[in-house]
Each structure stands twice: as C-alpha cells, then as structure tokens.
Simulated scan of single mutants.
Amino acid sequence: MIPVRSPRRGLILGVTITLGCVSGLGLLAGSLYMLFYGSEGACEEPGARERLARVSAVVPAAAAGTVPVAERSGAECMDDSGEPWMSANSVYTHGGDVQPLITHYWDTATADGWKPVGTRAKAQERFRGVSGMCFRKDVAGEPALLRVGSVRPGEFLVAVESALDGSSMDC
C-alpha cells in the first residue's frame, strides 16, 4: 500500500520552519540588543536617579538681573537616541546686554573647577553660537559639560549634561 500524503503537508511544514527561523532571529536580535544597549545605561536603572540628582546639583547660580522661565527649565534623563544622558537645564530671560552674563558664568564656572573649552576672547561668539560657551569637569567621578548660551534674543540657557554610562560628551 502506498501512503497518501496530505497536499497541505508541505505548506504546514514550510510555515512551521519559517516561524521557527523568525522566532530564533527575534531571540538573537533581542539578546544582542540587551547585550549592547539594554543591559546598562537605561534611564530606568536605579543609579540613573542618583546621577540626575548629582548633575542637577552642580548647575551654577543665576546671574543677577535674570528671571527664570520655569516652564522651560528642569532635569531629565533621555534615552531616545540609544545613548542615555542626563540634562539639568534652566532658561532665563535677561535685559539684553550679554556681556555681564558671559562674565558671570565664565567667572563662576572657572571658580567652581569647570575647564573652559575655548578662550575667554571667543566667549561672546560662543555664547551666541549653537553650542554656547562650554566647560568640562568631572561630577561625582564622571565627565560632565556645562553649556551657557543664547536661546533667542532676551533668553539664555544654562545646562549641565552628562552621559549615563560615564563616557565623555562633545561640546
């Protein structure tokens, strides 16, 4: 007697093999992601809140004559780019003359151990540039940046930033 095979047997076998391969690739991809990205440095880690508190604590005091813009200030951990980082920032309004702001933040930052990126002679140009004046120092043993710069006429931003994994960031 000759065994009779169902015409669907090949289709079922093909679907089963395909699903098995897709599941295996999914597990492999998920494991690789966790190995390289998800296993450390996520904003949900217990140490992330501590790091954010340390970063927030080193934001310099406001310059005289400035007014904070509360709804545009705050601290957060951002992990939308795959490289989680902390940012504590404050936006202020000012009377228009930026030179007193530049002097205040340059002197305050350097007195507090921040190392300027660039020279004081270029500070006004950098203040008005995309990155703003930029300073570096370690905060609780990990690299951080202090940026001070114009947001728009009459407003400026003071931000301290640090990568969650402790890597250095560029100005």
Rank of each mutant, 00 (worst) to 15 (best):
R147C: 00
N89C: 04
K115D: 15
D138G: 01
P7C: 00
A57K: 06
V58T: 13
E155A: 13
P116D: 06
A48E: 07
R152K: 14
V67Q: 10
Q124K: 09
K137P: 04
A109I: 09
R136D: 06
L25G: 04
D138M: 11
G47I: 14
E45A: 15
T119V: 12
A64P: 15
G96F: 09
G95D: 14
F36W: 12
T16F: 09
L28T: 08
A57C: 08
P84F: 03
I102T: 03
Y33W: 15
V130G: 00
H94G: 06
E83Q: 04
A63H: 05
S56T: 11
K115G: 12
K115A: 15
T108I: 13
V22D: 01
R126E: 06
V55W: 00
L52N: 02
T18G: 02
F36H: 05
Q124C: 00
S150I: 14
S39H: 14
A111E: 05
E125W: 12
L11I: 15
G95S: 15
G47M: 14
V117N: 12
Q99C: 00
F135M: 07
G30V: 05
G14C: 01
M133C: 05
G41C: 11
L146A: 07
M133Y: 10
G38P: 03
S131Y: 13
D165Q: 01
R72S: 13
E76L: 14
V130T: 12
T119A: 12
S162W: 11
R8Q: 05
V55N: 00
R126S: 11
R54S: 11
I12R: 13
T110E: 03
V59D: 03
S6Y: 06
A111H: 00
I12C: 02
G74S: 11
A57Q: 08
A29C: 02
V130M: 10
M1G: 13
V160P: 06
A144I: 14
V55H: 01
E44R: 08
L146R: 12
E50S: 08
V158C: 04
A88F: 12
E155L: 15
L145I: 14
M1N: 02
F135H: 12
V58C: 05
V158P: 03
D165V: 08
I17H: 01
T108E: 15
Q124N: 09
A61V: 11
L19P: 03
D79K: 08
P84T: 10
